[in-house]
Nucleic acid binder design. Structure first.
Lengths: 228, 228
DNA sequence: CCAAAAGTGTTGACAATACACCCATGC
DNA sequence: GCATGGGTGTATTGTCAACACTTTTGG
């Protein structure tokens, strides 16, 4: 990251991305986000969210794409993206006036991390508060809260799953993000009653009884009338 | 509004505000927003949202306050404010690169409009689409949708009402924003069951039977577990 | 045959809806 | 006394939560 000098009287806009995925470690799933180790001042050595400084004549989405490319993430793996908000505290960047327009991006699995990047746990953020640069801890927790809320009244979980999946896998997504266990029978009833998913071809075969595969009916965000 | 020249290679950030209130015209309530007539190019003569260009070292909230002051709105009348989002299409301002961080602000009544400002209907927006400058029609409809959603799962209606009010007035707020009628008995049951409001002292006396006054239990945004 | 995950129904409590009349006041 | 909005209850229906066992496969 090249040193950034923000001349007084001017104003820079950063675009920062909370890239979220679920890490399936053995028998449990854990929400993780992509962190980049900062090489330069300020906050050298600390973790930060991938971000770029916006260029003139650049779209917000293009800037997000640049940030993702720089973090080593293939664009086509991103299944959902939405704006979180804009953070503009004057002191958030010690170098000068840099506002941050932040985005949430979801992808099915944490791809291999490049040098100086790592997937860190996103959910119990007590530890990060001190270890994330700028106000990125605040942005991260905004992202997790947004995702939690949207699980209840949208199909946003499609962003964290591949093309097809079992209902148990879907439930694991909900449980991991919400941080609590759900009743298997009630969960299946509700998901099916709301027509969130449709049966897909084939079965997931594993060590035990094969499980029916499903896919989301829509792979763009759809809001539900009713709450889940 | 002074002419704005955005030098190439630089980037300006505007803060635009959707100031919403309910206009009580006789027997019906109608959501209205504050519009400013543009005196300068571009879009001279068209209606626009109140907004300012951010200064260096200025907080986002301070910029919103400046925009409100310029529009002739007393700050202390604002009962709720929240960020809507950031609009960054490169061509949204023909003068150059100007992103807009937009805010929603609620107040109990549309105060008298100053010169070159007017309260216009906010809800059936077909007409504005052509008459609002920049992408302000899009920002306005984002604001209305946000408010509609939040009525259902928060106490955000406090922003559109004064200190005390009758349940019929509260219901009128919901009906005006949602654009449909609600059942009086069920509405009262739900509002009271959720402890949104508490009884206040006194009665509203009018042409007919006096009505009990209520006040919101909280005058900052509170999210409800359950949906209204 | 054992371990492990997949799959499946019922019941009771509560919440949401639909619906109509009497009450208190000003004029 | 009448017009106007304020205020109230019930019956029905639908929805949510709690709860345990059988099935299918791999090893």
């Amino acid at each position: 990251m090249s040193p950034l000098a923000v001349p007084d009287g001017s104003l820079a806009v950063a675009v920062d991305v909370v890239l979220l995925a679920l890490q399936l470690t053995g028998d449990t799933a854990e929400p993780v986000f992509l962190a980049q180790r900062r090489r330069n001042q300020p906050f050298a050595g600390m973790w930060s969210l991938p971000g770029v400084i916006m260029r003139d004549r650049e779209d917000l989405e293009s800037a997000v794409h640049r940030a993702l490319a720089r973090s080593g993430t293939a664009l086509e793996r991103i299944r959902h993206m939405e704006q979180l908000g804009t953070f503009g505290a004057p002191q958030r960047d010690p170098r000068g006036r840099v506002m941050s327009v932040s985005y949430l991006a979801l992808l099915p699995q944490p791809a291999k991390a490049e040098a100086d990047t790592e997937w860190l746990p996103a959910t119990p953020p007590p530890a990060h508060a001190t270890t994330l640069a700028f106000d990125h801890a605040e942005i991260l927790s905004t992202a997790v809260e947004r995702l939690r809320g949207k699980l209840s009244y949208s199909n946003v979980a499609f962003g964290l799953l591949g093309e097809s999946f079992t209902l148990s896998e879907l439930q694991a997504v909900y449980e991991a993000v919400l941080g609590r266990e759900l009743d298997k029978r009630n969960f299946r009833k509700k998901v099916l009653a709301r027509d969130l998913v449709a049966e897909s071809d084939g079965m997931r075969r594993g060590a035990h009884r094969p499980a029916r595969l499903y896919r989301f009916r829509h792979t763009e965000l759809v809001l539900l009338d009713d709450i889940l």
